[in-house]
Design a protein around this nucleic acid. Structure first.
Lengths: 231, 231
DNA sequence: GGACTAAGCTTGTCTATACAAATCGACCGG
DNA sequence: CCGGTCGATTTGTATAGACAAGCTTAGTCC
C-alpha cells in the first residue's frame, strides 16, 4: 500500500469527524477496537491517534478513553496559514463576505506604513470571515499593486487574499504586532460584538522583494479566537 | 525515571541546539548512534526525533540523515526575557514592586497546568513593573520549586524573575497563548486601568528538563504596551 | 576521466509483546 | 443507601526485531 497505515487511520478518524459521525466530546473507538477494525498492530493505531491528539483534534485520558476535542482556535503567528484552511481543518464551513474591494490613493499615514509615495495607488479590501455562519475575523487589508496587480480581480468568497498573495508575492519577511483594542462602531457591528467586549488585533506587514507587499489588520473577538503556539 | 525516555532524548537534542553545540544545518547523530548513547530501543529514539521534526526543530531526509532546521522565525515572544532590559533600552527607568512572593499549595487547576501533583508546593509571585513610574506590566507567576529552589530568596526589585529563571532552569520549550481580556478588579487597580480598557494577556509556560518550570501571565494595558516582532 | 554498480548507511514503517498507570463500573459488606 | 474493593478496560510507554526505501560513497568497468 502506498499511504502508510497510520495515515489511513488518521484519515479515517478525520473523515468520521468531518462527516459529523463523531461529534465534539464523543468518545471514539478504543485502540484495541481500531486494531480489530484495521487489522494492524496496536502501536500503529497508537501513533495515528497520538498524532491527532498532538494536533489538537482529539483529547486523550489514560484509563478513560479518547474523545473528539472541543474546537479551539490555535493560530501560530508564525505560520501564516489561511483562516479558511484552519476552519476547514476543523471540519467546519468557512464563508466570506467581501465588504470592500477597491483601489485607493495612499494618504500620508498609509503611504508611510506601506513605504510607498504619497498618493500612490493601493488596493484595499475589507473581508468578513465566518465559521459556520458565525463571524470570526474581520480582515482589513492594503496591498501593493506592483507586487499583486491582479488583486482586485480575485473572487475572495472562494479563496482568501492570503492564499492569492502567497502565490503572487512569496514573502521574505514578516512583521507583526498584537494589540488589544476596542474596535470602532462598524467593525463591532460586523463582528456582532458587545459594546465592551475585548478584541485582539493582529497587525501584520509582509515584505516581498524588498517592498511592503501587504499590510493587514485582523480583528478577533476575544472569546472566539486566541493565538497560541509553541516552540 | 519519571520523565519518559523519549522526552529525555528530546530535551537532550534541544539542549544541544540551544547551547550552540549543533548549529543550523548541522547533521545530528543518527538514530542508531543515539540508541547506543542512550541505551534504548530505536523506536524510542525514532519517536523523539520524529516529534522534533514535526515541531519544526529538525528536518529529516530518508537515506541522508537528520539536520538542525533553519530557524524560520524570531519572535519577541521568547525574547521578552526581561522587561527591565526592554525599558532600559528605551532609555527609561525600570522599577518593580513585589506584591506577593510566597510558597503555596497547588489546587487542582494549578496542579494540572504546572503538571505537578495536587497539593505540591509551588512558588507564587506577583510583581508590578513600572516604566518611569507608570505601571506597565503585571506579572503573575508560578514556579516549580524543584527547578528553582532559591526562587523566593531573590531580590526582584533588582533583577527580574525571568533573569533568575533563565540561569536556574535553561528552557527547553515554550508554550504561549495571547488573549484579550478584561482583568479583574485588583489587577485593574494595580495597573491604574479604566473600567473598560482592553488588556492583553500573554500566557506562557516554559519547560525545562521535561517539567513545567514556570507559568506566567503578563497583563498589559493595551495603550501602554504591545507585542511586536519580526521573522 | 566518466559512467555505472553495489555496499552500507540512513530514515520510514510495522509487528507482537509487555508492563505500568489511570479510570470506571460492578459487586459486596455494612 | 453508602462506601470500599477489585477487576476489566483504556491509554502510555518501551522493547527487539524486521523489511522497505532513499542517499552516499567507494569501487569497478569502460
Amino acid at each position: 500500500m502506498s499511504t502508510p497505515a497510520y495515515q489511513q487511520i488518521k484519515d479515517y478518524v478525520l473523515a468520521a469527524i468531518h462527516a459529523g459521525e463523531w461529534r465534539e466530546g464523543d468518545q471514539i473507538p478504543s485502540e484495541n477496537e481500531l486494531v480489530r477494525r484495521f487489522g494492524v498492530a496496536r502501536m500503529t493505531v497508537n501513533r495515528a491517534i497520538r498524532e491527532l491528539a498532538a494536533e489538537g483534534v482529539l483529547t486523550r485520558s489514560q484509563g478513560a478513553g479518547t474523545f473528539v476535542a472541543a474546537t479551539k482556535y490555535q493560530s501560530t503567528l508564525i505560520e501564516i496559514k489561511s483562516i479558511a484552511d484552519e476552519i476547514r481543518a476543523r471540519g467546519h464551513i468557512h464563508s466570506a463576505e467581501v465588504l470592500k474591494l477597491q483601489a485607493v490613493k495612499a494618504d500620508a499615514a498609509l503611504a508611510a506604513e506601506m513605504a510607498v509615495a504619497l498618493g500612490s495607488k493601493l488596493f484595499h479590501s475589507l473581508i468578513l470571515h465566518y465559521e459556520n455562519g458565525v463571524p470570526i475575523q474581520l480582515e482589513d487589508r492594503w496591498v501593493n499593486p506592483t507586487l499583486a496587480p491582479d488583486y482586485l480581480g480575485q473572487d475572495y468568497t472562494r479563496s482568501t487574499p492570503n492564499e492569492y498573495l502567497m502565490r503572487a508575492a512569496p514573502l521574505a519577511r514578516v512583521e507583526y504586532r498584537i494589540e488589544a483594542s476596542r474596535p470602532d462602531r462598524t467593525a463591532r457591528a460586523k463582528l456582532a460584538m458587545e459594546r465592551d467586549e475585548p478584541c485582539l488585533v493582529l497587525h501584520r506587514r509582509t515584505f516581498s522583494a524588498g517592498q511592503v507587499a501587504s499590510m493587514v489588520r485582523l480583528y478577533h473577538p476575544a472569546g472566539r479566537y486566541q493565538f497560541s503556539g509553541h516552540f
